[in-house]
Computed example of a mutant assay.
Amino acid sequence: MAVAEPSRTGSPPRFLLLVFVLLLTATDEAVAAGGLSIGINYGQIADNLPSPSRVSMLLRSMQVSKVKLYDADQNVLSAFLDTGVEFVIGIGNENVSAMVDPAAARAWVQQHVRPYLPSTRITCITVGNEVFKGNDTALKDSLLPAMKSVYQALGALGLQGQVNVTTAHSLDIMGSSYPPSAGAFRPDVVPYIQPLLDFLSAARSPFLINCYPYFAYKDDPDGVPLEYVLFQPNARVTDPATGLNYDNMLYAQVDSVYAAVQALGHTDVDVKISETGWPSRGDPDEAGATPQYAGIYIGNLLRRIEMKQGTPLRPAVPIDVYVFALFNENLKPGPASERNYGLFYPDGTPVYNVGLRGYLPPMDESDATRTAIQLFALIALASVITLVLS
């Protein structure tokens, strides 16, 4: 093997170029190998957010392995090509009815899914979000047919088994959630949920639920123990029917959904948390919306996720959670809390410290600059390989 001569031009030694390449690719390899098991909701109802390419660098520097969108933003999906990050993409409520038409569903999949696979890891499509929370009967009636059309479109393109189809629900679909073993869906949604569960079972797709213990505390701060909703030491709650002990409300909420699903005849559908979070700021009547409590909730939740904990009812199944949300979103309607669920401000500064360290590149770092750096790195790598083989 030839021995490299010392540099005579002042350029860095070739082994340093190899180190540079390894540093450039180490983050993506870590994400592909697993990264953080936490998922993050990446909402974009704001006019001051960083570009998707900068967000890609931020999330990759945090080694976040799962991202959930509320749409199928082409700029976002393109920014995460070949990063190993797993994506849930969405079809908004406004487009659900159109997806009932198989041709429309197939066109949507061809435009928003097929071009990005396998370079972007799209693993799930949510059709609608919290559809049963409103009073739109036509939307409710369209949901399952739309899900079936999208599922069939995936099959026609050979993508079934790679991409799941489901929808996310608000916890207010529950008619009863306490104790967890008495969990039951509201009578008015059961006619919709029963066939939907049959579909999820056949398609091997999860049941997604948006769980916010914060809402329970906000509505009754004197009656709901703060420690119980923040994963702090507390007296625990025992389910009298099962004898299972709960040390936090989130797990109790998830198990109540499992009980409701089982009551409709299904033990073969996994329940996953598609949203949970805690606001760092709110209106005067929104009790508990502070950076301190938000940091405690998210920090303790992250620790339990990393411990791969399951709920008392499903202790062997680690909870699967998508935290809401990546950024504060300044254009979201509603009370102040709605605009303050983010882990980060739009400039990349953490809203509170839970140990998630990330790097948001400066605004003047253009895509062209990054492309040039990556090209330089590839040339350097090729040079090193040539040297080794020579």
Rank of each mutant, 00 (worst) to 15 (best):
S11C: 12
R14W: 12
R14S: 14
L16F: 12
V19T: 08
V19P: 01
F20R: 15
L22G: 08
L22S: 10
A30C: 13
A32D: 10
S37Y: 06
N41E: 08
N48S: 12
L58S: 08
L59R: 00
K66S: 05
L69W: 01
D73M: 08
D73E: 13
Q74T: 14
V76R: 09
S78L: 05
A79L: 07
F80Q: 01
L81C: 07
D82K: 07
G84T: 15
F87H: 01
V88H: 12
N93M: 06
P102F: 01
P102L: 05
R106I: 05
R106D: 07
Q111V: 05
V113M: 02
P115V: 03
L117S: 01
R121W: 15
T123A: 03
I125Q: 00
I125W: 10
G128N: 02
N129A: 15
E130P: 00
F132K: 01
T137I: 14
K140I: 05
L143W: 09
M147R: 15
G155E: 11
A156Y: 10
G158K: 15
G158D: 15
V165W: 11
V165T: 13
T166E: 12
H169G: 06
S170T: 12
L171S: 12
L171G: 08
P180L: 06
G183A: 11
R186Q: 06
P187R: 15
D188W: 10
V190D: 04
A203L: 11
N210L: 04
C211W: 00
Y217W: 07
K218M: 09
P221Y: 03
D222I: 04
G223E: 14
G223D: 14
G223V: 11
V224C: 05
L226W: 02
E227G: 05
E227N: 10
L230E: 00
Q232A: 04
P233M: 10
A235Q: 07
T238V: 10
D239A: 05
D239Q: 06
D247T: 04
L250R: 06
Y251E: 09
A252F: 02
A252I: 03
V254W: 00
D255T: 00
D255Q: 02
S256K: 00
A259Q: 00
A259F: 14
H266M: 14
H266T: 03
T267S: 13
V269Q: 13
K272D: 04
K272P: 01
T276G: 07
R281E: 11
P284F: 11
A289H: 12
Q292G: 03
Q292M: 08
I298F: 07
R304Q: 09
I305H: 03
E306W: 08
V317H: 08
P318L: 05
V321E: 02
Y322Q: 03
F324S: 01
A325R: 00
A325V: 04
P333G: 09
P333I: 13
A336P: 01
S337W: 02
N340F: 07
F344L: 10
P346V: 08
G348W: 11
Y352Q: 06
Y352E: 10
N353L: 14
V354C: 08
M363W: 02
E365V: 05
E365G: 00
D367M: 02
T369H: 13
I379Q: 13
I379N: 08
A380D: 13
L387N: 10
L389M: 14
S390D: 12
